[in-house]
């Protein structure tokens, strides 16, 4: 059984890639959406402060973190679809490594998110954004962003397995917006009322954004914040990874 774990995981990942090939428009829309947000906030909100200046340097790390958070939706849509189409039942009735269903999901989502990061960084660079943190800082920042996405991934899998209903996906699609905006992605918490600032600072998204700003050498970064951007996602993973795996195994209850 375990000898097939790798083969089956790879097959399941390829399944997701084949789905991309079938829906190129959806893939492009997914990649373009964060770019659109970046441009919108850069020009509309940040317009007064100038797009090319300090606000862009502040905004880009925030948008990168926000994009990772919004990845939650994609994961939930895919898992919920599989559950409701009964295709997960077919997988589970086959002599395949059971975990491969979840591994394939993770691999494909992480790949899509890495691609999303690359596109967003490319557009930012074209607008004049630069990292000031050197190659090590840059790679560290990308690592933190992907770690945050990985935590979101397992929250998404768990929630989908628990609810299994398309209605929940809709609710989450709406709720990610306030959660996304109650962060420091667009503005410094110091510019907010105290209570709001506190909420915003505790948002895991803010932790990642702040650490990435630090590693990029951008305004809004705080030295020594990297540990928090490591600890938060790891804590979320410590909760949701085992829950999701247990939930998946318990589909047979």
């Amino acid at each position: 059984m375990t000898t097939y774990a790798l083969t089956d995981s790879w097959t399941m990942t390829r399944r997701e890639l084949a789905r991309w090939g079938r829906q190129p428009v959806a893939v492009v829309v997914n990649l373009v959406f964060p770019v659109m947000l970046l441009l919108m906030f850069g020009y509309l909100v940040g317009g007064g402060r100038g797009v090319s200046g300090e606000y862009l340097d502040f905004l880009v790390p925030g948008m990168l973190a926000l994009t990772m958070a919004f990845g939650l939706e994609g994961t939930m849509v895919a898992v919920t679809q599989d559950l409701n189409k009964g295709v997960i039942d077919r997988f589970r009735s086959m002599p395949m490594a059971n975990g491969a269903v979840l591994v394939g999901r993770s691999a494909a989502d992480m790949l899509q998110s890495a691609l999303g990061l690359a596109v967003l960084l490319g557009v930012a660079a074209a607008l004049g954004w630069r990292t000031h943190g050197g190659p090590a800082g840059f790679l560290g920042a990308v690592g933190l962003l992907l770690l945050f996405r990985f935590a979101m991934l397992w929250i998404g899998i768990h929630l989908s397995l628990v609810a299994g209903k398309p209605e929940l996906v809709q609710a989450v699609q709406i709720l990610v917006w306030p959660v996304g905006f109650l962060s420091n992605a667009f503005a410094e918490p110091t510019s907010m009322p105290d209570w709001l600032g506190t909420v915003v600072q505790w948002n895991p998204l803010s932790q990642t954004a702040t650490a990435v700003r630090d590693l990029f050498g951008s305004p809004g970064g705080e030295p020594g914040h990297v540990w928090a951007a490591v600890a938060w996602p790891l804590a979320l993973l410590a909760i949701f990874f085992p829950l999701a795996v247990r939930r998946f195994a318990r589909l047979s209850r």
């Binding site: 079938r22 189409k85 009964g86 295709v87 077919r90 002599p95």
Partner: peptide, 16 residues
């Protein structure tokens, strides 16, 4: 290893 299943709902990947 020895069974096939046709469930009540088509268990297929609709996109593929």
């Amino acid at each position: 290893l020895r069974i096939g299943l046709l469930g009540q709902h088509a268990a297929l990947d609709e996109e593929l």
